[in-house]
Amino acid sequence: MDLTAGMLPVVGAKVSLQAPDGWKVSAPQTVPVLTAGNTKRLRFSVTPPAGVTAGQTVLTARADYLSSAPGRVAVQPFAVAAMPAPPTVDTYAGDLTWLTSTNGWGPPERDRSNGESGAADGHTLTLDGTTYAKGIGAHAASDVEVYLGGRCSVFTSDVGIDDEIDGYGSVTFSVVADGVTLWTSPVLTGASATVPVSVPVTGARHVHLKITPAATSLSGDHGDWAGARFHCA
Rank of each mutant, 00 (worst) to 15 (best):
P107I: 04
A120H: 14
V46N: 03
A61E: 15
S174D: 10
S45K: 14
G22T: 04
G55M: 11
P32N: 03
A61N: 04
G71L: 11
D178Y: 12
G22D: 08
T102Q: 11
L3H: 05
G71I: 02
Y147L: 00
A228S: 14
H208R: 15
T156M: 03
T47M: 11
A140S: 14
R72N: 15
T4H: 11
G149V: 06
V171T: 10
T35L: 10
A63K: 05
S157E: 07
G190F: 11
R62L: 12
S45N: 13
E164W: 10
G227M: 08
S45A: 12
D162R: 00
A233V: 07
F173P: 00
T156R: 15
V171Y: 01
S174E: 15
R41S: 15
A61D: 03
S45F: 06
A141K: 06
S192P: 10
R43F: 09
Y147C: 01
K210I: 09
H206M: 09
P196F: 11
T91N: 03
A19E: 11
V25F: 11
K40W: 00
S16M: 11
L127F: 06
A120Y: 13
G22E: 05
G137A: 05
N38V: 02
T39M: 03
D111A: 08
P70H: 07
V31Y: 10
T4N: 06
C232P: 10
T216H: 03
T35K: 09
L209G: 00
P108H: 05
V199K: 07
V201P: 01
V11E: 12
V176D: 13
S67C: 01
A226M: 08
K24G: 02
A85D: 15
G106H: 08
D143W: 01
S198K: 14
P70C: 03
F173L: 04
F230P: 01
T53K: 15
A5R: 04
P48N: 07
M1P: 13
S67A: 15
N38D: 09
V180H: 12
G94K: 08
P200Q: 06
F78A: 07
S153A: 14
F173Y: 15
F78H: 04
P196N: 12
V187W: 05
V176C: 05
A27R: 14
S153I: 00
G122W: 06
P70Q: 03
A214D: 08
P213C: 00
D221K: 01
G190W: 10
M83I: 02
V197W: 10
T172E: 09
V187H: 12
V175F: 10
I165D: 08
V89W: 01
A85S: 15
D163F: 03
F44H: 06
L96N: 02
G37Q: 09
P86N: 04
P77I: 08
S142G: 07
R205N: 14
G55Y: 11
V146G: 02
G227Q: 05
R112E: 14
T202Y: 01
V11H: 12
K134D: 09
